[in-house]
Design a protein around this nucleic acid. Sequence first.
DNA 1: CTGATTTCTGACCAACGTTTGCAGAACCAG
DNA 2: CTGGTTCTGCAAACGTTGGTCAGAAATCAG
Lengths: 329, 329
Amino acid sequence: MLRDVAERAGVSLSTVSRVLTGRTPVSKSLRARVESAVAELGYRPNAAAQTLVSGRRRTVAVLARNTLRYGYAATLQGIEEAARASGFVVTIGVVESEDPEAMKSAVDLVLSQPLAGAIVVEFDALGVATLDALPESLPVVAAAGARRKVGSRPHAFLDDETGGREATEYLLGLGHRTVHHVAIPATRARSGRSWGWRAAMKAAGIEPPKVIQASYDPDSGYDAGQRLARDLSVTAVLCGNDELAIGVMRALAEAGRRVPEDVSVVGFDDQPFARMWTPPLTTVSQDFVGLGQRTFRLLAEWTATGRKPRSTSASPRLVVRSSTAAPPA
Amino acid sequence: MLRDVAERAGVSLSTVSRVLTGRTPVSKSLRARVESAVAELGYRPNAAAQTLVSGRRRTVAVLARNTLRYGYAATLQGIEEAARASGFVVTIGVVESEDPEAMKSAVDLVLSQPLAGAIVVEFDALGVATLDALPESLPVVAAAGARRKVGSRPHAFLDDETGGREATEYLLGLGHRTVHHVAIPATRARSGRSWGWRAAMKAAGIEPPKVIQASYDPDSGYDAGQRLARDLSVTAVLCGNDELAIGVMRALAEAGRRVPEDVSVVGFDDQPFARMWTPPLTTVSQDFVGLGQRTFRLLAEWTATGRKPRSTSASPRLVVRSSTAAPPA
DNA sequence: CTGATTTCTGACCAACGTTTGCAGAACCAG
DNA sequence: CTGGTTCTGCAAACGTTGGTCAGAAATCAG
């Protein structure tokens, strides 16, 4: 408690507070005396009391569907790094279900804290719903994939539409007649990367084949791979993420189709295992950690200036490895 | 604010508080009236004020070196799930460096919040140091690998020593003369799984070969794999985790050594990609999510009863897939 | 139906640990 | 002596909880 420090240092309570907050000039000797008392007592200010009286908030909430999956976890890490560097604490709130009751209770739980603001990881439809469930009074920013129609809240984007387009163009450039697509769940009808794939196909004058809708997991990629393996005309597959890609490759391998000799496979995200795969996986590398950092900075700017910041965007880049090649003759 | 709700419902402030805290009997009609006022106003209690006056804390801090790596992220997920189910919020504090200054500032940041308690993910030496940096006055529990000499704080263990032993016994049982080991960094001199490997070797009367020390990453496994590939007497390798295993396998493949025909490789953790590997990876499956849940429950029990709970332990299990076989004749 | 008892409600207040504004005292330099 | 620093104590405020006390309403026994 402040009072103990004041006693120990032989000064008044107000003086200690003034030294600690640093808003008032204080002599060097006094500062030293107070600081040593703080150190001796191991005093830590009570954030609840500080927040209550000053309204200063040093906590940001991260709301996400998941914290384990690579993209989410890496974004969270970026947010945490940036927040810690600025002296903010981050609390996490996992939103598991779109059911309004469950959503409300998850949101209420984190909002019961005094928050400087909230960050929503808007990689899926649940993220959009979460954004809607948050009060307008709170500064809220979002981390998202490709720029699409979104609400009025600032976003940090990671433009996977461009990534999807480039990967598709690359495959077509190798001579493939068409590129099949195994899609992850999306914020809207289609994820950015799916739009990019579609756009590249249309631009090349090719009618996009039917999308194979999958979840995020290798198993689901495996199922998709089994279907693709049956169709011998398939020579190139763009997968919505790396985990799907490895599932697809496993199914292809089991069906006796070689990668990349018979079929080229491209992943998305560049997870750490991708370059160790057999064969090393061609994939679109996305800087999720950087996305998290940018997102936090958006929020920090907002709370510091009081003005809603402009959204920012960054692009992923294609990393060519050995899971892609020209189609068989 | 409470006062607004009271006005809206036409009752006194104390009554609203009584309804909300539920410690005092209140008539149904009044309760309904207050609750509808709460709903109309979208009132959320101010946790800072509640904590300040009642001392009730609903936040637990998770201190970890990392939140992205599989084991850490999965443990965090388990903690979050269990905490949310009990109405607790979790804040994360990444501790990046053992440097006392940096450690203190990271710890101080999260401890400035009013906490019900803290959970340390003690998978590495940094976790041990973090545990030491936490005040005795706070309820602190830890999630850890195999049971070793630890301080007086309750632990939830995931007994990787048993896992390491079983994996090694399995390899020896296949007829391998010896089992090499690529080790992850450890809490102490050796991780539990390394001890288990060593114990199984000694029990079989085999002098354990020199451990190849690695980090956590595929790259580091790749380096280890290159060294192992040079020694043609190597027929079995136990890796400290799955990422190391895939690095080892890539290096072996590049050196022309087949898995499992020439060399058997076993991983650790059973990450989602492990069963999709080529060949599907034999590994020791660890329930990190369950570990996180158990750890939180330890803390919840402590804060509820006021008595320090007893540590708990669970064992991983070996999952045999196709990366292991009898040694070449 | 009355009176006694129990249950519910309102008003008021202290407390939690800080920040911050105010008025003034002590000190120093010029 | 004046003016500027630096420091002091005092007190209000933040939004709750939870205690006390008194009165109103409901319930019950007879």
